[in-house]
Design a protein around this nucleic acid. Sequence first.
DNA 1: TTGTAAACGGAGGATGCCTCCGTATATGGC
DNA 2: GCCATATACGGAGGCATCCTCCGTTTACAA
Lengths: 216, 216
Amino acid sequence: MAGSSPEIVRKPRADAVRNRERVLAAAKAVFSAGGSEASLEAVARHAGVGIGTLYRHFPTREALYEAVYRREVEQLGDLAEQLQNAPEPVAALRRWLRANVQFVATKKGMVAALALVAAGSSELHAYSFDRLTKAIGTLLARAVAAGAIRSDISAEDVLRALIGMCYMHDQPGWQTTALRLLDVFVDGLRVQPPAKAAATAKPAKKVTSKPSRSPS
Amino acid sequence: MAGSSPEIVRKPRADAVRNRERVLAAAKAVFSAGGSEASLEAVARHAGVGIGTLYRHFPTREALYEAVYRREVEQLGDLAEQLQNAPEPVAALRRWLRANVQFVATKKGMVAALALVAAGSSELHAYSFDRLTKAIGTLLARAVAAGAIRSDISAEDVLRALIGMCYMHDQPGWQTTALRLLDVFVDGLRVQPPAKAAATAKPAKKVTSKPSRSPS
DNA sequence: TTGTAAACGGAGGATGCCTCCGTATATGGC
DNA sequence: GCCATATACGGAGGCATCCTCCGTTTACAA
């Protein structure tokens, strides 16, 4: 049978392609809302396909996460390429980092799921880690070459910090916080004194305010 | 809080107390090893009690996580208190942050589980967030008062950054990375130019080296 | 010692994961 | 346009885990 034959690939059936797409879309929607608690049966239902179909396309829960995850990573990688031509290297780096926050914001519930993936499948992790590291690498290299940023911090370091800062987002104001943290971090990266630190983000506003907790 | 009845509390039974303790210990052990995949039945078995007993003490999976989580938080809070009397405020802050990394390191598998808790139960989250925020707050306040650290970053901000940085730990060398990131972050916090940045951590060693990836 | 509230253990219903297989259909050859 | 068949579809059902419920056991107080 098909064992050693060169390739008699019959071209994938149209309905298969359509269904795969549907499941992927449904998964993204359901996971974004329900996090890692969403049942796969719910995804299948939402996609309008049988549970069997879902499992043929994505044999395991992880496989499904992976497919979604991979897309997200691609988009971020592309953004970095665009930013390569920006005039200010440090600003470009900062922009990309901030874009990540925005990015995560729209995915809310999905992050928990993605976290599980990142910890699990090491092959995918390697891929995405590599892709994102390179994305940061190019931005970082330019800034270092311009003498604006210290050279003893690697792209991986920055990636980890970024991911870390985007992780903790359950309170209402988390985005503001994450952005502020990134500024502090970037300031820490600079070679020059971080005098006008906060100014980069919000020139005129006092940032001392806190959400609603009790700082006492 | 208080109900209104005069309370005829009969004093908890000895075996109940003992079993509760056993379950808690078993849970910590099992979760630390197996992460969030460990079944509650496994915990019960490991603790040598029936599944029903486990569920009476901790009605939901979250409740069990909570109990463990709460202890960990307590310990960190206590550490902060001890550090309050340290001579160098910035160093004390840095020490506490670094201690967290160490702390997480020994809990490996449990972090995934704890992450789920943090995202779920808002009551516990509020408590621990508060406890840790205060811990950082005292350390931070001293450093600010000494004029060594900028005053526009709140304790909550620092906590978030810290948690974030400790999160991503699946690669072998994550601890080293986390510690380096914390240094950069603390440098970003400083009022004065971060000239001797890396020096605080490792006076004489060049840190430029990167693990093994391809920075190209 | 004895009565009783409190705690124990595990059977079992409910739900979700994943496999398997009979049915339906898109595709390519005629 | 029609047929043959590889390909894909759907969902029933086996298995594991979650959680509840209730009959039995046990520690405590009188």
